[in-house]
Amino acid sequence: MAKRAYNFNAGPAALPLAVLERARDQFVEFGNSGMSLMEMSHRGAIYEAVHNEAEANLRELYAIPDNYKVLFVQGGASTQFAMIPMNLLRPGTSAAYVATGSWATKAIEEAKLFGDTKIAASSEADKYMRIPAISELDYSADAAYVHLTSNETIEGTQWVEYPDTGSIPLVGDLSSDILCRPIDVSKFGLIYAGAQKNLGPSGVTIVIIREDLIGKPALSAVPTMLRYDTHAKASSLYNTPPTFGIYMVNEVLKWVKEQGGLAAMEALNRQKAKLLYDAIDGSGGFYIGCAQTESRSIMNVTFRLGTEELEKKFAKESEAQGFVGLKGHRSVGGLRASIYNAVPLESVEALISFMKEFQSRNEG
């Protein structure tokens, strides 16, 4: 097999090699069916078993309480930006959003289309390079929900701990840090995540929603496919789901279990992040971390060099050495290494070696 790239893409992102190899071996024929899974009816017993196993594995890994539904939907997190207020933001109430960066801002702008939307806290004054302290949150006691973005891929910040919002449902966009560590699902009313960063290929979105939030939508006329009750009643089989994508999600979930579960994933992720941040902080200012230290993400490490010209040189030379995806997002520039679950420790070590070598040639 040809040498694989050092994949630091922000999304779609690295998938575990073992998962890709299993998918390759099952691609043409799944089991002894004589067909690829992609050719099968989503109503058939073979696919149904895969579908149910994916839900069971996610429930096991996160110890999801029985009063929560797990949904497999389409449209990415961006569709959830609209579905959430459509279903939860009732007339006479407001939605509280924590503004932490690019993705939180997109969610806020979408929510404004459907009802009263307020900012519970914001780090805009700090160029979104930190997560607001829990003590900074300020929202109405009759808020329909409080929304946060767990990890901002573009800025490279992440919530260390989540707020306790009491009787007000906490809604979390976990698209870029789902499965990176254990969490207490019961602290949330709803969790959603696009799969393409840490859970599988693009095309699948996971929604974990408390059953009492699934009733009649808040808006009077919500399209059938944008109602949580539609998908909950049909076990995510109301229409044809992204069957192969869900199969891949299940394979990733099985892989996480094989690695030792979420506690083991967190330990590895923190090891990778520490090595990379130590290399940045120990460079004598040649590399400059973007996010404030207490808010640094263990999934997306953002950093700068002294000039944009030097950053372009870094990106070009690193790509020539087999490193992929190290350019920062076009909206902020700089550099970014996304070190999701599937990025091996060896890739991070190789990147650090390149960074040191690049510094030795370009310093001074």
Rank of each mutant, 00 (worst) to 15 (best):
K233Q: 12
V324R: 15
P16E: 03
H51W: 06
L20N: 07
P16L: 06
L268P: 02
V256D: 13
A234E: 12
F354T: 02
V222I: 05
F244W: 12
K356F: 07
S338A: 14
V332Y: 01
L219Q: 14
D126A: 13
V171K: 00
K356Y: 04
E53A: 14
L61D: 06
V73N: 02
A54K: 00
L113A: 08
Y340W: 15
V301G: 05
P85E: 12
K69E: 02
E251S: 09
S176Y: 03
S318I: 11
Y277D: 05
L326E: 09
A18E: 15
G322Q: 11
N198R: 03
G189M: 06
S176K: 06
Y62K: 07
G245F: 03
K118P: 00
D177G: 10
D116Q: 14
R304M: 00
I339F: 13
G215Y: 08
Y247D: 11
T205V: 09
I208Y: 01
P12T: 14
A10T: 11
T302P: 01
N250V: 04
Y340D: 09
P182Q: 10
L345V: 09
L170N: 02
Y277H: 11
T205I: 01
T153M: 12
A144P: 04
H51E: 01
E319A: 10
M355I: 11
Y247L: 09
N67W: 10
E109Y: 04
V19D: 10
S186W: 09
A144Q: 07
R330E: 14
I64G: 06
G200L: 04
R181S: 04
L113H: 15
E317Y: 10
Y68H: 08
E109I: 07
V348N: 13
Y145N: 08
G334H: 11
S176L: 02
Q259A: 10
K197Q: 08
A232N: 05
L179D: 01
P241T: 05
D164A: 12
C290V: 07
G44I: 06
R43S: 13
D173E: 08
N239E: 13
S360M: 02
E161P: 07
G245S: 11
G34D: 06
A49P: 01
A125T: 08
E317I: 12
S176D: 10
S123T: 06
A120M: 07
R130P: 08
G194R: 02
G92C: 02
L345C: 10
R361C: 08
A111N: 07
V28G: 01
Y47D: 00
